[in-house]
């Protein structure tokens, strides 16, 4: 029997449409069940009214929110000057660790020691040690500022991680690219600069995005050595108003920034996976 092109959807399309409708119904039903359960059950808990009063207090939120936003600008500022410094230092450390010339051997050792030390110590400890230790040397203003030394602690720690990501990016460039570039007469340095590094950096953009998101949150660790950024400001409100809602407000402000950034990083990751497959 000759094949006939029928008008309308094929058997397969009808089947798939039915499957899709079925999944949609199941997903909706289960979501509604969970949400309703939460709305109904949580307020039934004996301490709910107290929790609501101290964590989700509308009046407190409205009162503290503008000040929290102001304080968040300090986080943004510290982030804004730390991130470029981390990118540059991280790249330099990555290159130092892969240096081949014997004259640069000390640099290799230094690079390895640097990443081992700063990846091995909790960020908060580095912030404490550098943030309190260096101003303790009795430096004159403005060199005793916790902003400077706190930022330096973040830069050192994050550079160690970022350097390792750059190195993995450099390794991800196939060695045939090196061979092709060398065969044209390029020097090792030119091969790195013109051929390997541009590809390596592009390969690790999504991974580095995640580091930026983590950095944005870790800026709050500087509150422990002085700067009144958003976490510290929320703490001040908590003491003044005897209420935890300002912390929830701070969390909301973080999420407003980090959720789009996280979504974007995931999107970049997914796109890269597609390109490689």
């Amino acid at each position: 029997m000759p094949h006939q092109q029928t008008a309308g959807p094929t058997r397969r399309q009808i089947f798939e449409a039915r499957q899709r409708r079925k999944s949609l119904v199941i997903a909706s039903a289960s979501t509604i069940t969970v949400v309703v359960a939460l709305i109904v059950l949580v307020p039934l808990a004996p301490g709910w009214s107290k929790v609501q009063q101290s964590f989700f207090n509308g009046a407190v939120l409205a009162k503290s929110f503008p000040k929290l936003l102001d304080a968040f600008m300090i986080n943004v500022m510290i982030f804004a000057w730390s991130a470029p410094a981390i990118a540059v230092l991280g790249l330099l450390i990555a290159l130092a660790r892969d240096a081949k010339s014997p004259a640069l051997f000390p640099l290799r050792i230094f690079g390895a020691a640097f990443t081992d030390i700063f990846r091995g110590v909790p960020v908060i400890l580095t912030v404490y040690l550098i943030g309190f230790g260096i101003p303790g040397l009795g430096l004159p203003r403005p060199w005793n500022s916790p902003y400077i030394w706190g930022s330096l602690a973040l830069v050192l720690t994050y550079s160690a991680y970022v350097a390792e990501i750059f190195r993995s990016g450099i390794d991800s460039v196939h060695k045939s690219q090196r061979a092709a570039a060398l065969s044209l007469g390029l020097s090792e340095r030119q091969v790195m600069q013109d051929v390997v590094l541009p590809q390596a950096v592009r390969n690790v953009v999504p991974a580095q995005m995640n580091m930026l998101i983590a950095l944005q949150k870790d800026v709050s660790l500087l509150s422990f050595i002085g700067p009144v950024e958003i976490f510290r400001q929320a703490g001040v409100f908590k003491s003044l108003m005897a209420n935890f809602t300002p912390y929830v407000g701070a969390a909301i402000i973080f999420l407003i920034v980090t959720i789009p950034a996280t979504r974007y990083a995931d999107y970049l990751m997914a796109r890269q996976m597609r390109e490689r497959s």
Binding site: S176, Q177, A179, A180, A181, V195, P198, Q199, R202
Partner: peptide
């Protein structure tokens, strides 16, 4: 080379 090895960027 067999696999071209053009610079993709």
């Amino acid at each position: 080379f067999q696999s071209f090895n053009l610079f993709p960027h």
